[in-house]
Nucleic acid binder design. Structure first.
Lengths: 224, 224
DNA sequence: GGAGTTTCTGACCAGCGGGTTAGTAATGCG
DNA sequence: CGCATTACTAACCCGCTGGTCAGAAACTCC
């Protein structure tokens, strides 16, 4: 769609609407201002999600207290609650990223040197540190493994979502975001190794797997 | 350093060398050509790593045959070999990304709409599908969990490295890349949950953890 | 249909930045 | 020292694009 903010000419934008260049300035003060409006929309929606998530997490800790090692071993109720809470939050984030996937794409790949660069990557940085802190807490409670720096976990999780967001802008069909969120959480928590002791025939179809025959939808190619 | 290819003026570059604009063209045919040289260097080095890695993997399979479920349960020799092989390969990739971190940064964030955009993201896409295929194989051999789409695992791993690469360009000190690689592999394989049955005092220092007091080095701020 | 209002056009301007080149300084060498 | 070669400068050209504006077109309401 766009070749980056710098690469998109005013005429490109107006021509795509079937208008002439002059008409642009009847609707927006400048290219940056127009993009800024959309970005502000996305940004505030994202901040709302983050805020809500932090509050939810605080409420959880207030109501249920800190998790302990045995919670994970016996998959206690409050443990399952925490898991479903954060999976749900992540799904919300994925949905938002899908809705704004083109904006996110431009923000991430094509806003270098503009006022928007720090907005996107500041958000990413804050998310990394939020997730890191969350995991540091889990480590202190002996719920999460402690032989790994929390920042690496943060980068792992956020990096995954960042890359997925970029892939979204090349898809024409909406993927099963809920399946994505569930898969990611499963991987983060339990790892990719097959659960021990479980053997399955290699050729048969697996039950309750979180994906159809071929997971991602067809590619979307950038319009010229 | 750079405000993206489009954002960097010739005069900015020459001024940074204490020269005048005209002198630039005595050394390079164009901005793109200059950047292209560096990029080609990085790109061929990266492709070499990938090629070598694929060959190594093929040799492993030829010599040791496919892994089976019990290999992971009993942490067999060939399993450990496979793990250390891919950790080592990832470390090599991280080292290369560190050496070219500024180039990678520009390639990822500031090359939208140039000939270099597809180079970087094509590479990323190919890596995602390579990792996906690797995991699909592991799934068929019942070594990796099958209830997660391989492409999600691919995006998870590659996304992590992509984000880390971007963080590199803001660091002034080289982080412990080997620790990163080990942590990531541990997380990917075994997940983030604490190993069951292991209780540790929350306040004491953990043994053999893969990180010092504060993991990442200090930030580097972009020079104006 | 015509006055008034809104919406849009397309020619125009101005400045920025890539690329050129004539001329100048530095360097090397017999 | 004098000549040649190399390295660089700075003014210049020019195309491209953001932004402006007078006027045309469309639309509305009486």
């Amino acid at each position: 769609m766009k070749k980056g903010l710098r690469g998109a000419r005013i005429e490109d934008i107006t021509a795509a609407c079937g208008l002439s260049k002059g008409a642009f300035y009847l609707h927006a003060a400048s290219k940056e201002a127009l993009f800024g409006e959309v970005v502000a929309e996305f940004s505030s929606a994202m901040n709302l999600l983050i805020e809500r998530r932090i509050k939810e997490m605080e409420r959880f800790h207030a109501e249920h207290g800190p998790l302990e090692a045995h919670d994970v071993a016996e998959r206690s109720e409050r443990y399952e609650l925490l898991v479903s809470m954060s999976t749900e939050s992540d799904l919300g984030t994925l949905e938002l990223m899908w809705a704004y996937r083109d904006v996110v794409h431009v923000l991430m790949r094509g806003s270098q040197g503009t006022e928007f660069e720090s907005l996107m990557w500041g958000l990413v940085d804050r998310e990394v540190s939020r997730v890191s802190q969350e995991f540091q807490r889990l480590q202190e409670d002996c719920v999460s493994r402690a032989d790994v720096p929390p920042t690496v976990i943060g980068s792992l999780i956020v990096g995954t979502y960042v890359l997925l967001a970029q892939q979204m802008s090349q898809m024409e069909q909406k993927p099963d975001l809920a399946a994505w969120a569930r898969s990611i959480h499963r991987l983060i928590r339990e790892g990719s190794l097959a659960p021990e002791g479980r053997h399955r025939p290699a050729s048969s179809l697996h039950a309750q797997e979180d994906f159809p025959a071929q997971a991602p939808g067809p590619r979307r190619f950038p319009s010229p």
